[in-house]
Amino acid sequence: MSTLLTHIAISDGKIKRSSLEVLSHLRQQAEANGHDTEAVIIDQNASQYVDQVKEYGPSTIYTIEDPIFENHRNTPLLKALGQVMDEADPHVFAFGSTESTKDILGALAARQDAAVLSDVSEFELTDEGIKARRPVMAAKILSDSVAKGDKILVSVRSGSYDLDESSADSEVVNLDFSIDESDIKATLRDIIGADSDKIDLSEAETIVAAGRGAKDDEGQELINELASVLNAGIGASRALTEAGVMDPSLQIGQTGKVVSPQLYIAVGISGAIQHVAGMANSKVIVAINKDPDAPIFDIADYGIVGDLYKVLPPFIEELKKIKS
């Protein structure tokens, strides 16, 4: 029997849903293969999240609690992850693919001499390790990969698995942690534009995304109004984050975030492959674009060919009526 360990990421005082998706999947894999499921929470208030993690049935929950984890910093996080790997000796250590995960995954693999597959959309255990499916070539195609060895790290795209609760009376193990500030060579000076009230795009049920077509003030106002009627998160194409019209954290696509909402409304977005790479797994896609040949229509479930300034006002009105 080996240990399958999941990292539970905390962001803005909440567990990242992608971590619980990964834990749900790993527990199913463990049950099918006779392995043990464990989880680790590394945060300044790690113990606060233990009860919620128990709902997903790990046999052991490790906590590492220290004020140093208030904000993401790679040096202390790597030390803590190494410590829990020493303790739990996991065969597979799985992560939700957040920006914080992306920051440490390569370094952790090198430090632990582990095999690693990042940003997979599916994976399962095999006799030798894991096999995984990953989108490649700007998510135009899929590749199958295998990772072999006693120690395997894997990060999983958000929305890849459904949540599956199965409560357990997990054993909780608190690991002592200390780090000398002098061992942390990098200094975190500031965090700009973090807003815990903002809807987390990687978990949003509905996203309204704006592209170059909606660049001016009037376009932005319409986008905000549509998002507010639908209680949606707002996303953007690179054309708008690059132009400084939208916050860079809102970019969806190959460089930006990968999202998988129930409803994605692309307004004035052409549908370049690098954008589609981030949103093609949305359940229902609506595209509003004045160019009938725009590639976004190839993947849209509902396409409206038209000028967004003429389409959005009646669309918003109609949705208001439906919602009331």
């Binding site: 490649v136 195609i141 990969s145 295998v146 072999k148 229509f297 396409g303 060919v305």
Partner: peptide, 21 residues
């Protein structure tokens, strides 16, 4: 290498949608 690509495949396509003009 500790990992290896074993093959490539097409992405399952989305059902064709409706386009309105």
């Amino acid at each position: 290498p500790k990992t290896e690509v074993t093959g490539y495949m097409e992405k399952p396509g989305r059902e064709p949608g409706q386009k309105f003009e």
